[in-house]
């Protein structure tokens, strides 16, 4: 199995995490975690509620800074870099609880995703950069107008990926969308960044089986296009179908890693899930985001 794993590891890691640690008071949310994601790979992170998955994403994406350990992105040490710098380097993420810009239209939400690609925002010289940006926004020379048109067309193209779900709602404010549609907007926004690495935090939370299946196809499509994806997901069948590799976390640490099938039968993994939740009402498909609990019971299925 170790050999198999080694073979499936691509040569050039896009993301390398080593010994990442984050404490919250007495609690160690992420504990000496190491992880690599190769170019074009889809790696899933699973684990019971409170395992530290979202915290891990926050550390990678620069919203939170680790107490120890390092993050290397495309061979460059990016530990502790701010979220906005990481976005500029090509890292995009979605949020577990959905964070769309409520009073912005769907189209504008997606366009914010392309923010780092705008030429006007590139000059980072203090004082001069912002003033140039202001001048460009007010004067709007043809090049700026052309860029905006191009991005708009592209944003519509991205939204079309979700079929008829979003396209008719392009000009609707995001707060008027259904929960599932907001998740779609988040993914569209992430794609508009042209990410080198995409972090998805439970993209199907709160979706019904049909919607989940659609989302699975979309992620599969992204993967086929060569996008590198790090995925947090509680729905195990989805993880099994999509992942090249699965990393299992518990209490902030990695307790297993490997091919999906191997991980699913790992006793330590089963133990971790059983230890956290009694086997019980799996509500994977209730279409409601119950926030904390509920979803955790689902992975127990792999114990069958």
């Amino acid at each position: 199995m170790a050999d198999q794993l080694k073979n499936s590891l691509p040569k050039k890691p896009l993301l390398e995490i080593a010994g990442l640690t984050r404490h919250f008071g007495g609690l160690t949310a992420v504990n000496g975690l190491s992880l690599t994601v190769g170019q074009g790979e889809l790696v899933s992170v699973i684990g019971p509620n409170g395992a530290g998955k979202t915290t891990l994403f926050n550390l990678i994406s620069g919203l939170d800074a680790p107490d120890a350990g390092s993050v290397t992105f495309e061979g460059r040490d990016v530990t502790g870099l701010s979220a906005e710098r990481l976005a500029a380097l090509g890292l995009a993420r979605s949020f577990q609880h959905g964070r769309v810009f409520g009073n912005l239209s769907v189209l504008d939400n997606v366009l914010v995703g392309a923010h780092t690609r705008l030429r006007a925002v590139k000059p980072r010289i203090p004082l001069v950069g912002p003033l140039v940006e202001l001048a460009l926004a007010l004067i709007r020379p043809p090049s700026v107008r052309a860029e905006e048109e191009r991005l708009r067309a592209e944003a519509k193209e991205i939204v079309r990926m979700f079929g008829e779900r979003l396209t008719p709602r392009l000009d609707k404010p995001a707060h008027s969308l259904s929960y599932a549609n907001r998740r779609r907007v988040e993914i569209a926004r992430a794609l508009a960044l042209h990410p080198r690495l995409l972090l998805l935090d439970e993209p199907t939370a709160g979706m019904n089986p049909t919607e989940t299946a659609e989302m699975l196809e979309i992620i599969r499509g992204l993967k086929a296009r060569g996008l590198t994806i790090l995925l947090i997901e509680h729905k195990l069948d989805l993880v099994m179908q999509l992942s090249d590799r699965v990393v299992v976390m518990d209490h902030g640490a990695r307790i297993a890693e490997g091919l999906p099938a191997a991980v699913a039968s790992d006793p330590a993994v089963i133990e971790a899930y059983l230890g956290h939740k009694a086997v019980g009402a799996a509500n994977q498909d209730t279409g409601q985001d119950t926030g904390q609990d509920g979803d955790a019971a689902v992975p127990v299925r792999i114990a069958h």
Partner: peptide, 30 residues
């Protein structure tokens, strides 16, 4: 005119959710 440009949506994105805005490269101080 300013609000109709890319700056309009960027500024409003900060209001709506500054964390998400930062994650998309919006430098809040700027």
């Amino acid at each position: 005119r300013l609000l109709n440009s890319h700056l309009g949506r960027t500024l409003r994105a900060i209001r709506e959710d500054d964390v998400a805005a930062r994650s998309y490269g919006v430098d809040l101080n700027r």
